[in-house]
Structures are given as structure tokens and as C-alpha cells.
């Protein structure tokens, strides 16, 4: 059984916890370094990325999160993707830069432009269709070297990864499908891969 941390400064961290508990793993809500130290892996949930970054800096968590991401697997959904990115083109804040992608915030528009649609998953040797929920979602504008594409929606990459960091611009935690969480916990960034 693995200990999966979920950054719990704000957002839908409880939804992630439910998924992880269904998969039989332990969850820890992370608001400080002490909690983070207990974790084998970390999820940065959906929420408001501006709020996340303000709180990360106010609580002096930037360096510890970067160090964690250099050593252990981290999964970011929606706002979590923005936090982990190298650069955000339409905002003046500085994300953690753990995955070499460039992103645009709220790239589809406001809440009336939020949508549910099928995306094509391509990971773990399987190619399949998956119903994804996009809420005021960001877009990955550019993937640099070393970043793999794991899902796409039309021409957009909506899930990507490097060695340790997994990101999705949609919300697997708002569905009943455990597939992506199972991938992150049981298959992603394992020895020998």
C-alpha cells in the first residue's frame, strides 16, 4: 500500500482522496512539509491556480515541492497542471517548472465554455476513448523535449508526462473511472520503465 499525498490548500482534494481510497491506498492531505515527508507520491488537485501559488509561496512550500517532484512522482490535474508547468503564457506568476510544457490558462474561455467530451488515451500500452471533464481548463501550448503525450482531444495534448511528473488538463477525479489514478499510482514512474 502506498501513501498518496494530496495538496490540500484548496480545491477538489477530497474527490482525489475518494479515488485513491477506492484503489486501496492511504491518503494524506498535505498543507505543510511534515505531511509531505510521509508521502510516496503527490497529487496537485483541481482548484484555482492563482490561489494555490499564492498559498504555496506564503507557506514557503515552493522549494519543498520542487525537491519532492525531482525525487518522487507527482500528478497534477487542471490547476495542478498549471502549477507543475514550466511557463504560463497569459499570467504573470511563476509555476514550479517541474515539467517542460508551456500552458495557457482558461484557454477555452469561461465557465459557459466548460465541456465534457471524449479524449483518446494512449498510455500503458492501451489506446482507448475516455470521457473527460474540462472546467475552465488550461491548454498545453507547447511540449518540449522529454515530454510524452498520453492523451489528446482533437489537436490538443490533454495529458502528458516526463519521468516523474504526470499532468492532465481535465478532471479524472470528477468521474467514476479509476483508470487514470490507477495508472498514476501503480504503473507510472516505476523502476524498469
Amino acid at each position: 500500500m502506498a501513501v498518496i499525498g494530496i495538496l490540500a490548500l484548496q480545491g477538489d482534494f477530497e474527490k482525489h482522496a475518494l479515488m485513491i481510497q477506492k484503489l486501496g491506498h492511504e491518503t494524506v492531505f498535505v498543507k505543510d512539509q511534515i505531511a509531505l515527508n510521509k508521502c510516496d507520491r503527490l497529487i496537485i488537485p483541481g482548484g484555482e491556480s492563482t490561489t494555490f501559488l499564492k498559498l504555496i509561496d506564503r507557506l514557503n512550500l515552493r522549494k519543498v515541492l520542487i525537491d519532492f517532484g525531482a525525487a518522487k512522482p507527482v500528478f497534477g490535474t487542471c490547476a495542478g497542471l498549471i502549477i507543475l508547468a514550466k511557463e504560463v503564457i497569459n499570467d504573470n506568476f511563476k509555476p514550479l517548472g517541474l515539467i517542460d510544457i508551456e500552458v495557457s490558462r482558461n484557454a477555452y474561455g469561461r465557465q459557459i465554455d466548460s465541456f465534457i467530451d471524449d479524449v483518446n488515451l494512449d498510455f500503458n500500452g492501451a489506446k482507448e476513448s475516455y470521457e473527460a471533464i474540462f472546467i475552465r481548463a488550461p491548454k498545453i501550448i507547447k511540449c518540449f523535449e522529454g515530454v510524452r503525450h498520453l492523451a489528446c482531444h482533437m489537436d490538443d495534448i490533454v495529458m502528458a508526462a516526463n519521468k516523474n511528473i504526470l499532468v492532465a488538463s481535465f478532471h479524472p477525479e470528477l468521474t467514476d473511472d479509476l483508470k487514470i489514478h490507477d495508472f498514476f499510482i501503480n504503473h507510472f514512474a516505476r523502476e524498469g520503465q
Partner: peptide, 18 residues
């Protein structure tokens, strides 16, 4: 339904905040 899921989804994103 899908529409309602999207609406509640945004409310979920605001949790734990002000």
C-alpha cells in the same frame, strides 16, 4: 446529467477557499 456535472464541477474547484 452532463450539464449539471459541469456546474457542480466548478463548485468543487472553489472548495476550501474564500
Amino acid at each position: 446529467n452532463k450539464e449539471f456535472k459541469l456546474k457542480i464541477g466548478l463548485a468543487e474547484m472553489l472548495k476550501g477557499g474564500v
